[in-house]
């Protein structure tokens, strides 16, 4: 079948197409299908050993391997950027083991494997977003027992999630949880969105692309099907809010993307730039590109930090 000719195609490397053998891929796909059928529910799967340590995206890489076809175009991002260690090594891995086309442009990709971010460019129906998840269980913080947390999911006992948010407000006056902010999917399961900033939480809601989450160490897959309601938990009098910056991106001048703070010298000079490197570059290449983008409004790009 197609599996065998994929095998022959990459027999030179001694690996099957996309590293995993076909039976394993079928097992992972079955888990993915179940995850899509029950939005937000953590489906256990027989996670394999991958040639990288746990915590480096072993869950996400298995999902990507199971999903990849020869016509797919893969994009891998780590903290929003295409040129960081994790992204580079995973992209190279699939270049070698699957020989698929890779890209840095969000719009061109069909499968995007991500760590810690959702791209700024809105996703489409023909795209799949694969997340790498270190800790899939949102209840773990208050309920260390796995048997008990499974029961809590089954009975929809999610009061403790609000206990966590209550603690935030009681201690700091506002909800300070800024990443891995718990969400409720399709009005049922409470889910950890993986350590993406809460800035990205609204992008998961009603998203046209399929979003799947893989946790390699815990061997769990969960998913948000396209156009599914995703609500961030909050209180009536302390509603959910995303991060905001006074600064704009020092390179492209964007005011509505997630910004990273970069230290420029040892005298406290800093610059804020888009964490999504592809978004930032495409903005510089098009519309208000060039010098205006490179030199944004006065006082916006850098900031003196008081000693």
């Amino acid at each position: 079948m197609s599996g065998t000719d994929k095998t022959t195609r990459h027999s030179g490397d001694g690996y099957n197409f996309a590293y995993l053998d076909e039976q394993t891929k079928r097992m992972v796909r079955r888990a993915i299908l179940k995850a899509v059928a029950i939005p937000g529910y953590q489906v256990p799967f027989a996670g394999r050993e991958m040639p990288m340590p746990f915590g480096w995206g072993t869950g996400g890489i298995q999902l990507t391997a199971a999903l990849l076809g020869r016509d797919d175009v893969l994009k891998v991002i780590d903290q929003g950027a295409d040129d960081t260690t994790n992204a580079v090594s995973i992209r190279k891995f699939f270049q070698r083991t699957a020989g698929v086309r890779t890209t840095e442009r969000t719009a061109e990709a069909t499968i995007i494997q991500t760590r810690h971010r959702i791209p700024e460019t809105p996703l489409r129906e023909d795209q799949i977003l694969v997340y790498q998840v270190p800790l899939p269980e949102p209840l773990r913080w208050l309920e260390p027992r796995e048997t008990e947390s499974r029961k809590m999911h089954a009975q929809e006992e999610y009061g403790v999630m609000h206990v966590k948010l209550y603690e935030d407000i009681a201690r700091h006056g506002r909800i300070v949880t800024s990443f891995d902010y718990p969400v409720r999917v399709a009005g049922r399961y409470v889910m950890s969105p993986s350590p993406i900033p809460k800035f990205d939480n609204p992008k998961m809601d009603d998203c046209p692309a399929l979003q799947i989450f893989g946790a390699g160490r815990e061997r769990r897959v969960y998913a948000i099907p396209p156009y599914t309601e995703v609500r961030s938990l909050d209180f009536e009098d302390h509603p959910f809010a995303i991060q905001r910056w006074v600064e704009s991106c020092g390179l492209c001048g964007s005011r509505n993307s997630y910004l990273d703070e970069i230290i420029l010298d040892d005298r406290g000079k800093r610059m804020f730039v888009c964490s999504d490197s592809d978004y930032c570059r495409s903005r510089r290449e098009t519309e208000d590109s060039g010098p205006t983008a490179v030199v944004p409004e006065n006082g916006r790009e850098t900031r003196e930090v008081k000693a």
Partner: peptide
């Protein structure tokens, strides 16, 4: 905190006002 301990049952019953 003590407050969260007392509030837990309320929150599990759907009280969403801090």
């Amino acid at each position: 905190s003590a407050g969260a301990n007392i509030g837990e049952r309320l929150m599990s019953l759907g009280q969403r006002n801090y």
